[in-house]
Design a protein around this nucleic acid. Structure first.
Lengths: 333, 333
DNA sequence: TTGTAGGCGTTATCAT
DNA sequence: ATGATAACGCCTACAA
């Protein structure tokens, strides 16, 4: 592999000059620049990014942590981040946390030890205190889909409370009052906030929150299945069901069908996230849109702005969910 | 940040000795090792991976290229790769090719310029010749879901021909003879091979391949929708439809329903890949399993074996698809 | 505008 | 078993 030294020799200039032409913005006369460029061409020179990193203390890499690599939600998020960063010549190092506190911490250590210029985290198990401490470190930290008090500037978050509210009012507007709710794991802030929004909507319409119509699921298909089983066994009737994410809604829908319950005629179902296959289920799922791909883009922009000196980028820290009306809600009025 | 030098000073040993204790397998007396370990502890020393890379010419990173970051298929693939590599202390740098020749080449250049110890590619647009040339380079290259003649040892592939054959015989076994086929983009080897298998099955049962029952889709939902529209307009009747992947099958299924066609009673549909939401559609999709997560694991093992000296790993280069029977195929017999 | 020289934090090769 | 010391390839004051 040709080095900067070979290039300097062939071009008849010094190391420094070669370095100057690689790192753009430095001032080099057009003539020498061309000589150097030609020499590089001849030698097939490629700068060694490792050496660059060591000398400049910049790796041009940003670490990403997601809960899972699969799943439509994280896929979109990563796609948004990668696209933006790649266009800026940065690369992403991806690792997973599996919603487990130790794995999340391990992964973060891993990313930091890799000298990432910044890390973008979608973490669920780790505490706010841990994150606050983490942000005091040398590596800039940005949080996706999570809001931590005092870390406002580092967060890109969705107004989950509003989402929960929107889902519930959509149902109430159609005449539903007996509304069941399958939430996600309570250690996840998303799940808690969505539930809070749900309760606010109920309260605003003087509907009591009924514990018999409440089930804690796992944010996966199984949670929906187990949830609807549980709710039906409770013998408390309900005409609508809110699932705190689309996977659970899909599970509930499938199991409802197996029980002979017709959606939406017998039971309305509404999901959350608007993941790609919410359009594929039958009936097509009414849900709350979670613009996770946009949020991914924004997280990347935040990094570009703060870490890589792109000061002109406009940052939006908070995103709003919206109702996507499809076919899984029945109008009782 | 404490450096190896600080540690050596505090422990009263030389740089070399400190380096020896970090890089395990070297022989150091227990006593000095302990001194060094204590010093590291005291200083909160963390080796600088960039410096290690520069000196050792090893980055402990492997580059991954997928067509898309989202989508259930690539998600599972990446999950398989990352899990295996992460357990070995290696990390993944991920980039996308978007099934576009130039983007794929760019991405590969990018990964190589990043000094990855190896790259694992899921590429579709680039030619075999290009890949053969690429493999002559310094960076080891491994191919996912693609078989290139002469690169046998670097490929992890699925027997797509067999998959196409299985799908078709499954239908024929149920009494279907008028079978429509929606394929994927013909520059993709997967799509071609699946089609070849389809034709072999037809031929074995003396069924003629009918061009009026053939449509080239895009491997996405829209391909299924457009495909079924086209096929129905052709006015050539068919009782079964094979889609060369599940996304198209989902699209076809949805559109069939909108046209008042009942699946499977009026029309049997079979997909390919067994992506997660093939279980969520209604009726549940009969499909061909593509063990892409296992293949991801295997690709990672191949890298560990060949690049990172884990000689004891067993490698399987070719994977077999299998029929997953669900509810979307009608028995005509 | 261009060149010189020191440094980035390790690993690796010799000695001892 | 341990220690000097030279790479590794590049960046960046500082000097010319």
């Amino acid at each position: 592999m040709a080095t900067i030294y070979d290039v300097s020799k062939l071009a008849g200039v010094s190391l420094a000059t070669v370095s100057r032409v690689t790192s753009k913005n430095a001032r080099v006369s057009d003539k020498t620049r061309q000589k150097v460029l030609d020499a590089m061409e001849d030698l097939g020179y490629r700068p060694n990014s490792i050496a660059q990193s060591l000398a400049s203390n910049r790796t041009n890499s940003v670490g990403i942590m997601v809960s899972e690599l699969h799943g439509p939600f994280f896929g979109l998020m990563m796609a948004g981040i990668e696209k933006e960063l790649r266009a800026a010549g940065k690369h992403v190092i991806i690792t997973t946390g599996h919603s487990d506190e130790n794995k999340e911490k391990d992964g973060i250590d891993f990313l930091i030890s890799r000298n990432c210029d910044a890390i973008i985290l979608h973490v669920e198990a780790v505490t706010d205190e841990y994150l606050i401490e983490l942000c005091k470190g040398k590596t800039p930290v940005y949080l996706m889909s999570r809001y931590v008090d005092g870390l406002d500037e580092n967060c890109i978050s969705l107004d989950n409370e509003l989402g929960g509210y929107l889902a519930t009012t959509a149902l109430i507007d159609k005449g539903h009052t007996d509304i069941a709710y399958i939430t996600g794991p309570q250690f996840k802030g998303d799940a808690r906030d969505r539930l809070t929004g749900h309760k606010r909507a109920l309260a605003e319409h003087d509907i009591l929150f009924n514990n018999d119509l409440y089930y804690i699921g796992d944010f996966r298909e199984t949670g929906g299945i187990e949830g609807i089983k549980y709710l039906i066994n409770n013998k408390k009737s309900f005409t609508a069901l809110i699932c705190a994410n689309d996977e659970m809604a899909a599970g509930a829908m499938i199991h409802a069908r197996e029980l002979g319950i017709t959606v939406p005629d017998d039971l309305s179902i509404i999901g959350f996230d608007n993941i790609i296959f919410s359009r594929y289920v039958f009936p097509k799922l009414t849900t709350i849109n979670n613009p996770i791909d946009e949020m991914g883009h924004m997280a990347a922009k935040l990094v570009l702005k703060n870490v890589y000196q792109h000061p002109d980028l406009l940052i939006k820290h908070s995103f709003e969910p919206s109702l996507i009306t499809r076919d899984s809600v029945f109008n009782l009025k």
